[in-house]
Nucleic acid binder design. Structure first.
Lengths: 146, 146
DNA sequence: ACCCGTTCTTGAATGATTCAAGAAAAGAAC
DNA sequence: GTTCTTTTCTTGAATCATTCAAGAACGGGT
């Protein structure tokens, strides 16, 4: 029901697929599309994957959910929006955790030289190894970043 | 020739494909794989795409080049490494420009709450609109980020 | 010059995401 | 409540960057 209002508030039609997808994303933070499809089908078995892709895009464009897509990972989604938090991603298992913005307010970063670009967002991804993978220490593959 | 030494210095075998790829990346900063294939084939017409993929991965893992992969874009590469700079990406045309790190030293950011992750890198991507697209102002598609 | 292990070529496979066309449903009007 | 119009969903196929696999070719140390 809270999803209904969120959709209506964003000026979107309240359809069963959208409600199911929004609920699924809220229940599974950082879930990938496939997990969302599975989760949403628990409430709506006949849901097509295309409807999920469409819904995710629409919800993202409306700002109800946020898309995260670290290199080497498929798209992931979350409902925690508007607080400009960032993410830590594990290089070996792909686990994602939220990290509060070190500076508090959005945008938390301002490029020193923006080459004439109009910047509206600073996306930060911290790369490392999660606690579980640190203990079993498999060799992670780097991106070449510093 | 400088590529030969770079490869040797990284403990890699100096093969024609690797030299051609490294030169191509150096000559075309932020180029995608396909552009690199085309550029490398100017010096080595028989080069296979697989060799380019292999070379790019090896070079990246050895730290000779850096892989960038903004959401919605294919992988891109650059030879400017070790200075921890970041990137501005245009939402409408995908153009990429370098941005010096606002804080100077690497890692330039430290997450306030790292959830037990061992963080070795902070990757920053600024999203916005490039000068060319700003003047023709097509409507860019946001990611839902702040 | 030879040999071994790495790397390259060729060609097919993978898989997340998108495209396309018609059917169904949402919301507004009657 | 019914009808209409537009949006959205279902079905099914297509795309395309990237990876996998097997055998040939090459790099570099002896």
């Amino acid at each position: 029901m809270v999803s209904d209002e969120a959709l209506r508030g964003a000026g979107l039609r309240v359809t069963q697929p959208r409600v199911a997808v929004l609920d699924a994303v809220a229940a599974h933070p950082h879930a990938d599309t496939d997990s969302i499809i599975v989760a949403a089908r628990e409430h709506l078995p006949a849901l097509s994957h295309q409807a999920v892709y469409d819904s995710l895009r629409t919800l993202t464009k409306s700002g109800l959910i946020r898309r995260i897509k670290p290199s080497g990972s498929v798209a992931r989604y979350e409902t925690r929006i508007g607080d400009n938090h960032h993410h830590v991603v594990c290089r070996s298992c792909g686990a994602i955790a939220d990290v509060d913005c070190a500076h508090g307010a959005a945008p938390c970063l301002t490029p020193s030289n923006h080459h004439g670009f109009v910047v509206d967002e600073a996306e930060v991804i911290y790369w490392g190894t999660c606690p579980a993978c640190t203990s079993t220490h498999p060799q992670p593959e780097r991106n070449g970043h510093v």
